[in-house]
Design a protein around this nucleic acid. Structure first.
Lengths: 194, 194
DNA sequence: TTTTTTGTTGATTGACGAGTCAATAAACTT
DNA sequence: AAGTTTATTGACTCGTCAATCAACAAAAAA
C-alpha cells in the first residue's frame, strides 16, 4: 500500500478535514481522531505528520487565509481603477468560497484561538494588516486623508458581517453583504464631496 | 459554618468568576474547578448549585446580557429625542462596564457557544432582536424607510468593533468606538437629505 | 539482496476533568 | 429532642483524548 510522496496529500487532506470539522461542529472541541477519520486515515498518522493538534489547527488557519489572500490578489489583478479595486476586495471577502457557513464558523473559532495561541495571533495580525493596506490603496485616491478612518470602519463592518453569518440561521447571502459594505463606502465618499 | 441562604450568593459568585475566567483565559476551555476556585468554593458545590458546566456558562451569558440590557435601558430612560436615544445605545454598548477586555473575550466565546448550544443561540437571538428594535426606534424618526438598512449596518459594525477589541493588543478605547459608530449614522443620514 | 527510508496503524499510556457520592455539620422545624 | 433541610467538601468513578510506541509493509537506495 505505502506509496511514496504521500506527505503533502495527507497534510492537505487533514487541513481540509479540519476546516470542515471545526466549521460543522462549530467549536474547537474537535478530536484529532475525528479529523483524521474524515481525512481517511488513523489519528496516529495525523500526529506523525503534524506533531500536535495545535500544529494542525495552525495549518488549517494558514490555509483559510491563503485561499482568501489568493482570491483577493486574483480580483485585484484584473481591477482597473480604485473603484474596481475596492469592489474586488469586497467581492473576494464575501465570495462563495470564503463566505460559506462552515468556513465562517472556522474563522470564528480561529478568532478564539488567536486569543490564546501566539502564532494564531500573529497570523491574524498579518491578515489584518494586509486587508488594511489593500483597502487603503483603493481608498486613498478617492478619499484622501479620510481613507484611514473609512478603511477602519469598513474593516470592522466586514468582520461584523462575518460574525453575523456565523450566527445566522438562513441561507448566506454574500451579495447582500457586499452591497452593505459597498454602500458604506459610497455614502462616506459622497458625504465628503459636499 | 453553613449559613442558610447561601444559594444566590454562591451562584452570583460563580457567574462572576466564570466571566472573568473565560475572558482572561480567552477560551471556553475552563474547568469547573478553576471557576469554583476563583469563586472561593469547591467544584462539588458548583455542581450542586448549577447541575452542569453548561448551566454555569448559560447563567454567565444571561448575566452579561442582563447587565448590558440594564445599562441600555438606563441610558434610554434619560434620553430625550431620537438623537439622544441613539447616542445612549452606543454609549452603553461601549461603556466601561461592557467594553472591557475580559467581558468582550467572554462575548466572543459566547458567540462560539451559540453555534452549538441551542439555549445560547436563543439568548443571542433575544439580544439581537432587542438591539435591532432599540436602534429602529431611534432611527425611524430620522431615517424613515432607510432605518432598517442603517440599523442592520450599524449592528454589524458594533459586533465588528467588539471583535476587534477582543483581538486588539493595546488599551481599549470605547470613546473611539462610539465615535466611529456615530459617524456611520451621521453620514448615512446626511446622505439621505441631499 | 540487504538496508534504509517512508507510510501506516492498533494498542497503550498518562493526564485531565465532569459529575457523583458519602459523610459532616450547622441551622431551622415540629 | 428528634428530624429535616441546607451547605459543604474530599475522594472517587468513568470517560475521553492527545500523544507515543511497537510493529509491519512497501518502495528506494546501497
Amino acid at each position: 500500500m505505502p506509496k511514496v510522496g504521500m506527505e503533502p496529500i495527507r497534510k492537505a487532506a487533514l487541513v481540509k478535514a479540519t476546516i470542515v470539522e471545526i466549521g460543522q461542529k462549530g467549536s474547537l472541541d474537535v478530536t484529532v481522531a475525528q479529523i483524521a477519520r474524515r481525512a481517511g486515515m488513523s489519528s496516529a498518522l495525523a500526529h506523525h505528520y503534524f506533531g500536535s493538534k495545535e500544529e494542525i489547527f495552525l495549518a488549517a488557519m494558514r490555509h483559510v487565509m491563503a485561499i482568501y489572500a489568493a482570491e483577493v490578489r486574483g480580483g485585484l489583478a484584473l481591477a482597473e481603477g480604485s473603484d474596481a479595486r475596492l469592489r474586488a476586495i469586497l467581492v473576494a471577502s464575501f465570495s462563495a468560497t470564503n463566505f460559506r457557513r462552515d468556513v465562517v464558523g472556522a474563522w470564528l473559532n480561529f478568532w478564539v484561538l488567536a486569543q490564546t495561541v501566539p502564532e494564531a495571533r500573529r497570523l491574524l495580525a498579518v491578515y489584518y494588516s494586509r486587508l488594511r493596506s489593500n483597502l487603503l490603496y483603493a481608498l486613498r485616491p478617492m478619499a484622501g486623508p479620510r481613507a484611514e478612518a473609512i478603511a477602519a470602519g469598513l474593516a470592522a463592518m466586514i468582520d461584523g458581517l462575518y460574525l453575523r453569518e456565523a450566527l445566522a440561521t438562513g441561507a448566506s447571502d454574500g451579495a447582500a453583504a457586499v452591497q452593505m459594505a459597498q454602500d458604506y463606502v459610497t455614502v462616506q465618499l459622497r458625504d465628503q464631496m459636499k
